[in-house]
Design a protein around this nucleic acid. Structure first.
Length: 537
RNA sequence: GGGCCCUUCGUCUAUCGGUUAGGACGCCUGGUUUUCAACCAGGAAAGAGGGGUUCGACUCCCCUAGGGCCUGCCA
């Protein structure tokens, strides 16, 4: 019978309620893969009216840093992923973990192990030597290498050949063509899960010898993880090691700590990266060793880079704060990230709040998804156009400051603020918006780029001058009437707008991109626009 | 080496035994046009390969290939 949900929740939670958690280890920054995992946990908790907890897995004292903790907390806040309750620090619970290990020893499901790391390494080395020899033998049997003929005396020296094929001698096995099959079977046997010699109470080498506490892994049966995403994952119990639970220094390992903490925190659903998929089986065995009911697991495929390879430094930004600095909005990151590997069926762009009622763990795909910057750009453009004007303006100013620009004067800041509502519809990211805003912020006299210089030739200047006169007479300085005025002027000149627009724009912006000319005129303001034109006449 | 997992357009995905295999981003073509962007219309583009099961398979099973994870007194 498979363990399903837990019903023995702490008192403050209603019996049936879902509890999820995000459990990053503070050894770096909040990775976008981690951010997505957090998002899925948040989404599921919200959907179920449950609780979303945060636990910092800082049991590795050497690699955990306060800076990393800070970065993770900040990243989550930026993404709007608020957790319930106190942040839990795993290391602070070490005493409780030790207690659990003691309990398992008392139950006979764990034991003190006196095998040293040196002995372990020695054993591993010996095993891998044997493995190499048999693999070499198998290769020769399968592919046939005339230069390196089989010599059973030598090839099997010191190897136990009794396995699998009973009474047959190596020569007999070889003559019947069974030797390569035997080698394959032998290879499997040569890499067994670790079984400590102390699991059944062997006496310690010395009364005060240092020891670890290991799980007494079961030898028979199968461990089944009814994974919510991956489906049933079956692992033979004999393939699971006698895992270290408590290190020689008395500190808990990750494997023990997660289980104890997830249990104590009343976690009902563990949603995490599928790099933990095989760990689930190991952890289920620990749950059983404590006679606890395991949570439900959901292993989310990892995110890959654009080349399909595992995400690494080469792929550029990995930490969420880097994405923020690149000019992406948190709501866009949320929206993009949660659609990586999950689909509600129809909507392509939705906010995380809109996703809550539609969220289903079972709808998360099994295959890893690749990052696609173009798609992220378009999602960001969507949310940028929807974003609050004052916020966008502030973000642009912050970006310009970070990039090393001098602070904006009061007039410039006001001009930027006026332009934001128009420009945010045209830009994909904050830096791009800053670029689009260049024309507003430029100071007279404008420096013209080459194209602008060509446009503003002597043939054009008289026309520009007449245009200036016409615009000066405009009673209302808004883009609609200015647009009509431009058309009227073109008509009066007997030409199309194509003969007017580019030159006017060159005069107004010096060659920088800008919106519709009516808009450009309006955003510049009557005085500034007219003055810029006058500069070129 | 061993154990486990994955595989639909370039990318994210829909499909949960019967569809002309749908959408989105990107791309291409055309339109609008005053730069850039946006916008509108149209288009190209997919079930890794091979075996089964079935009246019928992208969907179920097996094999192969390719990718990934774990294999630590890291998490």
């Amino acid at each position: 019978m498979l363990p399903r949900a837990r019903f023995d929740q702490p008192a403050e939670f209603s019996p049936m309620s879902v509890v999820t958690r995000f459990a990053p280890s503070p050894t770096g920054y909040l990775h976008i893969g981690g951010a997505r995992t957090a998002l899925f946990n948040w989404l599921f908790a919200k959907k179920m009216g449950g609780t979303f907890l945060l636990r910092i897995e800082d049991t590795d004292r050497a690699r955990s840093t306060p800076e990393a903790i800070e970065a993770i907390l900040e990243g989550m806040a930026w993404l709007g992923l608020k957790h319930d309750g106190q942040t839990i620090y795993q290391f602070a619970r070490a005493e409780r973990h030790r207690q659990a290990a003691e309990e398992m020893i008392a139950r006979g499901t764990a034991f003190r192990c006196y095998v040293t790391q040196e002995e372990l390494e020695q054993d591993r080395a010996t095993a891998s030597e044997l493995t190499d020899r048999i693999r070499h033998l198998r290769n020769r049997l399968v592919h046939g290498m005339p230069d390196d003929p089989i010599n059973l005396e030598v090839d099997l020296a010191g190897i136990d050949i009794s396995t699998e094929f009973g009474e047959l001698s190596p020569a007999e096995m070889h003559s019947r063509g069974l030797l390569s099959l035997w080698a394959t079977a032998k290879l499997q046997q040569l890499n067994p899960a670790f079984r400590s010699p102390y699991r059944d109470g062997k006496t310690p080498p010395a009364p005060d010898a240092p020891f670890t506490v290991r799980l007494r892994a079961p030898d028979d049966g199968e461990v089944v993880n009814a994974d919510l995403i991956q489906g049933d994952v079956r692992i033979k119990a004999r393939d699971i090691d006698d895992l270290v639970l408590l290190r020689a220094d008395g500190n808990p390992t990750y494997m023990l700590a997660v289980v104890v903490d997830d249990h104590d925190m009343g976690i009902t659903h563990v949603i995490r990266g599928d790099d933990h998929l095989t760990n689930a089986a190991r952890q289920i065995v620990i749950y059983r060793a404590m006679d606890w009911i395991p949570p439900l697991f959901a292993h989310v495929p990892l995110i890959h880079g654009e080349d399909g390879k595992k995400l690494s430094k080469r792929h550029g930004a990995q930490a969420v704060d880097e994405w923020r600095d690149l000019g992406y909005l948190p709501e866009a990151m949320d929206s993009y990230l949660m659609r990586l590997g999950w689909s509600p069926g129809h909507d392509d762009i939705l906010t995380k709040e809109e996703a809550i009622p539609q969220f289903e763990i079972g709808q998360i795909g099994k295959a890893p998804a690749r990052l696609d910057f173009k798609k992220l750009d378009s999602v960001n453009a969507h949310f940028l156009s929807l974003a609050d004007d004052a916020r966008v303006t502030r973000l642009v100013e912050e970006h310009m400051k970070a990039r090393g620009d001098a602070p904006l004067s009061g007039d410039s800041a006001a001009a930027l603020a006026r332009a934001t509502p128009v420009l945010k519809k045209r830009a994909k990211t904050i830096p791009e918006l800053a670029e689009q805003a260049r024309f507003v912020l430029a100071k007279r006299p404008l420096t013209l780029d080459d194209t602008a210089k060509k446009l503003l030739n002597d043939d054009f200047k008289p026309r520009l001058s007449r245009l200036r006169d016409a615009l000066q007479k405009e009673p209302t300085w808004d883009h609609v009437s200015l647009g009509s005025a431009l058309k009227a002027f073109a008509t009066s000149e007997g030409v199309g707008l194509g003969q007017i627009g580019p030159g006017l724009r060159a005069a107004l912006t010096g060659g920088a991109p800008s919106p519709d000319l009516g808009q450009t005129l309006e955003l510049l303001g009557r005085d500034e626009a007219l003055a810029r034109i006058a500069d070129q006449v």
